[in-house]
Each structure stands twice: as structure tokens, then as C-alpha cells.
Simulated scan of single mutants.
Amino acid sequence: MSTVETDEIRAFVLSSLKEMNYSVAGVDDGTPLGPAGVDLESLALAELGIRVEERFGVVFEEDEAEVLGTMTVGEFGAALAARIASTPAAGQ
């Protein structure tokens, strides 16, 4: 059974944020993705969702972007790890 480690997810999220021109200086598991943290707006949250979908093969619904904006980096990583673990391996 292959599981994606939260460290791998965190590294991917931080790398994606850098590529999206967000500063990740001082960002840790307790940093909110939305206001008072990384400060991702709805379009940036959608882009992060798409990047995660492409990398890890999970799907986010459009209405989930609002919830993602309320999560910390650590909460997002844990939620993503749980979703990856519960998603059947894509063989197509």
C-alpha cells in the first residue's frame, strides 16, 4: 500500500506557492492559506487545487475552494493525505 507522506504534500504545496509567486518565508503547518497567512485569494486557491489534482490525482469540487481558504497549511496537507489514502489508484 502506497501512501503519500504529509512531508511530500507540504513540500509540493510550498513549491507550488513559490511558483505562483507567493512568499513562503516563515510559512509552516500553522500558517493559514487564506487571510492572515499566505493570503491566497479564490483564483489562487483554485490554481493550487488544480496543481494538487494533477500531481496527486484527487478531485476538488468548486465549492470546496472556500473551505480550503480557511485551512492552515498543515490542515490542508492532512486533508489531502486522507483524501489520497481513500482514493482508489487511478489506472487510466
Rank of each mutant, 00 (worst) to 15 (best):
E62N: 03
L40V: 04
E64I: 13
S23K: 08
S23E: 09
G30C: 07
G77L: 04
F56C: 14
R10Q: 13
A79F: 07
E8A: 15
A65Y: 12
R51I: 00
P32Y: 06
T70K: 13
P32A: 06
V67Q: 08
S42T: 15
G69C: 14
L43G: 06
D29G: 14
P32K: 03
A82Y: 00
G74N: 15
G74W: 11
A82M: 06
R83I: 06
G37C: 10
A65G: 00
Y22T: 00
D28S: 11
A79H: 09
G49Q: 07
E64F: 02
A46R: 00
L40H: 04
A89P: 04
L80T: 07
G37H: 03
V59F: 13
D29P: 01
V24L: 05
E64T: 02
R55L: 06
F76W: 12
D29I: 09
R51N: 14
V67K: 10
P35V: 10
P35H: 02
V59Q: 15
A79G: 07
P88A: 13
F56L: 11
I84K: 02
P88W: 11
S23C: 10
L17S: 04
F56Q: 08
E64K: 14
A79N: 05
F12S: 05
V52P: 01
A90P: 02
A44M: 06
E75S: 09
I9N: 07
R83A: 06
G77K: 01
T70W: 10
L33M: 15
G74I: 12
V13I: 09
A78F: 03
V38M: 12
E62D: 13
V67T: 07
S86F: 00
S15R: 00
G30M: 09
K18M: 08
I50Y: 01
G34D: 12
F12V: 03
A44N: 00
L68M: 15
